[in-house]
Amino acid sequence: MRVITVFIAVVSGLLVLSGYFLTGFFPVLADVQTLLLNWAIILMGVAALVGIFNLITVHTDKIRRRETGSFYSAILVFFLLGTFFLGLILRPEHGLMGVVMNGIIIPVEAALMGLLSISLLYAAIRLLRRRADMMSVIFLIVAALVMLGSATLPFVNLPILGITSRWITQVLALGGARGILIGVALGTLMTGLRVLFGVDRPYGGN
């Protein structure tokens, strides 16, 4: 099994990779790449379904074992199955599914996001009590300056605030952001190559 999985990972990866760089020499590689990518798209959709089935299994087990919080699990499973069958029958684009999205999903997510503002502010205020080092001080000063520059004052306009804030975000922060991006790209490159060389086998082919 291990040889098969490594073979599949390496061959499929190399075929897709060659579809990026060698289509000038072998035009058929573009078609092969499209084919493999479309297979991957289908499988990713099925994987999402399998994941949701797993969620149902976990919560139904909790209900069956009458664990703490099984009442909430029952609520979750009920609404999950209800929404799924509603979407299956009516289709996701139906108006009722719009009610589900605009009435439940958006308000809950947005309200949770709104609560985050309180938590972020709390954490920032308490940061210096926790660790009073140079990094924390720089972090908070920059955050405060960017916040100041993102707002305006009543009745008066102080463009200097916006200019300072923009200089921080578009010049000073840009250096760090670009360094992080290049670092992430290098890391991605190395990780991907390790997978393609069969050194890393995150799919479980130890």
């Binding site: 999402a48 699990s73 499973v77 609404f79 929404t83 799924f84 979407g87 299956l88 599914m97 439940i104």
Partner: peptide
């Protein structure tokens, strides 16, 4: 919990 259930059901659909 309702939100998680509804979201998961929506994604499944």
């Amino acid at each position: 919990y309702i939100f998680v259930g509804v979201s998961a059901g929506f994604i499944a659909a």
